[in-house]
Write a protein that binds this DNA or RNA. Structure first.
Length: 898
RNA sequence: GGACGCGUAGCUCAGCGGGAGAGCACCUCGUUGACAUCGAGGGGGUCACAGGUUCGAUCCCUGUCGCGUCCA
């Protein structure tokens, strides 16, 4: 007897600890075992588990548990990302709250020390949360992007790419976050739609012969304007191209140039060009050799390139002042309200500035070429395939990758500046000094670049840096040799560009052309029940840990797995999770039934040798299920696997097998007539349950492991006594499927279903136990039905199943699989209801006959459709006509009886 | 503006060339030998719209409308 219900709260922590202690999360040592590896998308070390992580990591765990059970050397390598800005911000905020010195007062070294202290104390939050979800990561191999090994990998990659001239310094526009005073990546920029204005400014022509009107949402940038552009074909301005306007306030002449960028349809058709503060204008500036005047400092305050009265002003104050100045000068030609997209730093929340600075860049175009080819030729495949379009789109239009960040938390760039601005790049300071000595012929002071690398730079190396590179190399016996390339990457589409693509580039470049993973599974994005992206500000976040508390990890995992349909959003609701919690309970209760009814493994049980049709049927259905689940998981069809298991366990095993098995099993204190059949059924039920536990384990590891343990001592010992987690995955041959048993049980089931439907439709009382009469059936069907009398009697609540030659008056007819039944319940019959039921049935059949007959009358159909389709329609027609004739006869009898 | 995707039962979604399914919700009934976190039955859909291809279209193609995401 099991406990009344499964209690996740007590079981989950106990089992997780036991699993981990057993060493079962580590790949098996067997050198013959096929390696199967996954690297985790490293969550930010500051992170806490949100529902997206829960989905992503559940799917990874499902896959790794599946492959582990299939006997592979399965490695799920976990770790966290140092997450430059996010982490620095968290610690800065904590310092401020505690009233400590600011980062700048404290100095770089002390501040970084503080971050490490913070990491030691709080950095493990998310990994502990993953454990609550059941994630079977090999924690002994856990890595951190800033640990010593990964830092060595970063330095080696940087130096190598520099030597190959694939890393270089350049002055370009970057996304500048004035709050953190650093460049940030495109990924860290969030476009937000905000209310704004178009200010229409008149720029007087230099010769005083007129003016040209430009519109802008950013008036302050006019302080850095170096041109006005018009479209080369815009007839209105043909005479002005090549002339100049005098920039108000600044009092600087700037040329009127012709450039395709100016859109004649927009506003006046003329556009002001500020090359140092707008990405489009920057390109216009490059094309036209315009000066680039930077008007901001690192805080986005106006610098000395602007007139004195503007210097030091914040950009928004400057905006106001510029507009006022235009108004005062009588040059403000209009203000128009608008809503437009404005870039914000996703961490700081402030408006990001395009800012002209010196930064380090990776020549991504060169690295992208083999990474594109790898997808084109199938070395790596996307699942679903459609995502490769997104990948190609970006990779074929790739821009130089800005990798330097003006932060303190991260990998310090291994570059040293010497006198005269000479740069020495080396993995160590000693190396740089040696280069400098050679270059200058004497010791000169070197200053290391203050900047750190983009966090994504180290993430891009994750699939090989975590496996021991560069210390280990692919040709030696090592994790790297064994587990690279990894097999499947499971991640979200939001980081295809920023992470997936870059791992492809770096992996191929540094691992002798070997791709970092053979398959990329892109999981859906989790949204709330309204389809909104979950965010704290919307207040619609669902905390996975709270859901685990309320329903157990298995229920959450099953829900996420079942809803993980490809290329689609997941709208999560508590009702759904509740439903799958109930599913676990159902399995628990079914197990309890088995236990109470003596179902136990039999020594040497052979599923192929069972005799009873019911048992042969369930063995076949179990086989189908095992095959379907295996195929689904093999192809990342997680939702299909979950769906298949749900249907089999609930709708077949519980609803039908267990119910139909009851007569064979007898009651605990009342043995059935056939002890051989009883024993066989007990053994079969236990066997099916063991298979089911294995198949369900990857999705619902806790409850299955617990049931596995609770049933460990029932009957013969299992082939292995360890955890279910490392049991052998079922591999059942199709020969276990018996079409004869399928047909027999199918007939019984359908008879019960139809009979019940008829009873309910006519309101036959539960207490009524009429006989079930067989009017017409072939000999085989008759034998099956008569033999199944106890089953049908119990489940259909009939007294007996008997063959008769003619239906008594008032008997209700129904037809299953060509068998004609009658239920004599004259005393309960509501004639009108029955007439309605029969007429409706006849109507449905008549419509079907008309459609099918019409089809078969179409010569083209008969000639062109496949033979089996034509045949199927012929059968359908014949069956429908036969059934209709019988029901019409019954209808006639009903009329006669009244 | 460009690219991609999506419009199937009240809701969330499967299906994707041969007369449409599930879960939840809803209605009726039920203390039947594990399970009320349950069981039995039921209602409910011109598969967005319009053309086309085909013997046959929810499924393939084109267009329209609506929605979403990413990139400008």
């Amino acid at each position: 007897m099991l406990e009344k219900t499964f209690d996740p709260k007590s079981v989950e922590p106990r089992l997780y600890a036991a699993w981990e202690a057993s060493g079962g999360f580590k790949p098996i040592d067997d050198p013959n075992a096929e390696p199967f590896s996954i690297v985790i998308p490293p969550p930010n070390v500051t992170g806490s588990l949100h529902i997206g992580h829960a989905l992503n990591n559940t799917l990874q765990d499902v896959l790794i548990r599946f492959e582990r059970m299939r006997g592979k050397a399965a490695l799920w390598l976990p770790g966290t990302d140092h997450a430059g800005i996010a982490t620095q911000m968290v610690v800065e905020r904590q310092l401020a709250e505690a009233g400590n010195q600011s980062r700048r007062d404290m100095g770089r070294e002390a501040f970084v020390e503080k971050i490490w202290e913070w990491k030691a104390k709080s950095g493990g939050t998310i990994t502990n949360q993953l454990k609550r979800l059941g994630a079977s990561c090999d924690w002994s191999r856990e890595r951190f992007t800033l640990d010593e090994g990964l830092s060595a990998a970063v330095r080696k990659v940087f130096v190598t790419l520099y030597k190959q001239k694939l890393i270089y310094r350049d002055k370009r526009l970057v996304n500048w976050d004035p709050h953190f005073q650093t460049a940030i990546s495109d990924l860290e920029v969030e476009q937000r739609e905000v209310d704004g204005h178009y200010w229409h400014f008149a720029y007087p022509l230099e010769d005083g012969s007129g003016e040209i009107v430009v519109a802008t949402t950013r008036p302050e940038t006019m302080l850095g304007d170096t041109a006005v552009a018009v479209h080369p074909k815009d007839e209105r301005y043909q005479g002005l191209i090549g002339r100049a306007v005098r920039l108000p306030i600044v009092n600087r002449p700037v040329p009127i140039i012709a450039d395709d960028y100016a859109d004649p349809e927009k506003g006046s058709g003329a556009v002001k060009i500020t090359p140092a503060h707008d990405f489009n204008d920057f390109l216009v500036g490059k094309r036209n050799n315009l000066p680039m005047i930077n008007i901001f400092d690192d805080f986005a305050h106006i610098n000395d390139n602007a007139p004195p009265e503007y210097r030091g002003l914040d950009r928004f104050a400057a905006r106001k002042k510029v507009v006022e100045a235009f108004e005062a000068l009588g040059l403000l030609r209009g203000i128009e309200k608008t809503r437009h997209m404005v870039p914000h730093g996703d961490r700081s929340g402030v408006v990001v500035e395009p800012y002209l600075t010196d930064q380090w860049y990776v020549n991504a175009e060169v690295l992208a070429k083999p990474a594109i080819a790898a997808i084109e030729n199938g070395d790596t495949v996307f699942v679903p395939k459609a995502w490769e379009k997104t990948y190609f789109e970006w990779m074929r239009n790739i821009q130089p990758w800005c990798i330097s960040r003006q932060l303190w938390w991260g990998h310090r760039i291994p570059a040293w500046f010497g006198p005269g601005g000479k740069i020495f790049v080396a993995e160590t300071e000693a190396g740089a000094k040696a280069q400098a000595l050679e270059h200058y012929g004497r010791d000169e002071p070197l200053r290391q670049d203050e900047d750190v690398l983009d966090t994504w730079f180290s993430s891009a190396l994750w699939p090989f840096s975590t496996l021991g590179w560069p210390e280990k190399t692919p040709d030696k016996a090592s994790d790297l040799a064994r587990f690279y390339p990894t097999h499947t990457l499971i991640t979200g589409f939001d980081i295809i560009f920023f992470w997936v693509a870059r791992m492809m580039m770096q992996g191929i470049h540094f691992m002798d052309g070997q791709v970092p993973f053979k398959r990329i599974f892109i999981n859906a994005l989790v949204r709330d029940a309204e389809g909104k992206k979950m965010s704290k500000s919307k207040g619609n976040v669902m905390d996975p840990l709270e859901l685990v508390d309320d329903y157990g990890a298995d229920a959450l995992r099953f829900t996420l797995t079942a809803m993980s349909g490809q290329a689609r959003d997941i709208k999560l609701s508590r009702e759904r999770i509740e439903g799958y919690r109930n599913f676990g309970t159902k399995l628990w209760n079914a197990t309890n039934f088995c236990v109470v009814n003596g179902c136990a493994r039999a020594e040497g049980f052979d599923p192929a040798a069972v005799k009873a049709p019911l048992n042969r049927w369930i063995v076949g259905e179990t086989t189908r299920t095992a095959q379907a689940v295996t195929a689904a998981l093999d192809g990342c069809g997680f939702d299909q696997a979950a769906e298949t298991l749900y249907r089999f366990i609930w709708r077949q095993y519980c609803d039908w097998y267990v119910e139909l098995a009851k007569p064979l099993l007898g009651k605990p204190d009342e043995p059935p007539a056939d002890l051989v059949a009883q024993a066989e059924t007990q053994a079969t039920a236990a066997w099916v349950l063991d298979v089911v536990l294995k198949l369900l384990h990857p999705v619902m590891p806790f409850i299955t492991e617990e049931i596995w343990a609770q049933t460990a001592d029932l009957g013969a010992a299992r082939d292995h006594k360890a955890f279910l987690m490392v049991a052998r995955w079922p591999d059942l041959p199709s020969s276990l499927i018996d079409p004869v048993a399928d047909a027999e049980i199918g007939l019984i089931v359908e008879t019960i279903v139809e009979g019940r439907s008829v009873r309910e439709a006519l309101n036959v009382p539960h207490s009524a136990k009429p006989p079930l009469l067989i009017l017409e059936a072939d000999a085989g069907q008759r034998a099956v039905l008569e033999q199944a009398t106890p089953l049908i009697a119990k489940m259909l609540r009939v007294a007996e199943v008997r063959s008769v030659s003619e239906a008594p008056a008032g008997a209700i007819p129904f037809i299953v699989d060509g068998v004609s039944f009658a239920l004599p319940v004259a005393e309960f019959i509501d004639v009108a209801a029955e007439r309605g039921r029969l007429s409706k049935e006849v109507g449905v059949l008549a419509a079907d006959i008309a459609r099918t007959a019409g089809k078969l009358a179409n010569a083209d159909f008969v000639a062109r459709a496949p033979e089996e389709v034509v045949e199927e329609n012929r059968e359908r027609l014949a069956d429908a006509e036969a059934a209709k004739a019988k029901l019409e006869a019954a209808l006639a009898r009903l009329a006669a009886a009244v």
